[in-house]
Amino acid sequence: MTTEAATASSHDDHEIAHVMPLPVLFGVFATLMVLTFLTVAATWVNLGWFNLPIAMAIATVKATLVALYFMHLRYDAPFNGLAFLTALVFVALFILVTLLDTIAYKPSVDAYRDANSVSAPQ
């Protein structure tokens, strides 16, 4: 049985994993470099609070390109991508709930600080 399986595996050589074509690799690299330049260039323009969402949007496009092509997720078993996305969902949950908590307590912290004239804790 093992022999059969081993023989079979030598027949499906090219199916072990997708081989990334070089033009795709170079194209992704060039796009990542352009986006890096864009994210630096975006700081030369003052857009107020909007600078942060722009920087994060560009970073997310870059991260998506790295994950889909350099990390092969586009050609992979979907389960790997699912594991990755699940992690991101939990990261978002973690940060958002903690943020909600600190926002909820902010008024009482500020009131305490004003009353006792203490600075923010180190």
Partner: peptide, 24 residues
Amino acid sequence: FDTHRQQFDAGKLGMWIFLVTEIL
């Protein structure tokens, strides 16, 4: 493992699970 493909896929899934812990 029966095949190289099975070996590769198992290793890759293991790596992704590890990367998930790194992200966390």
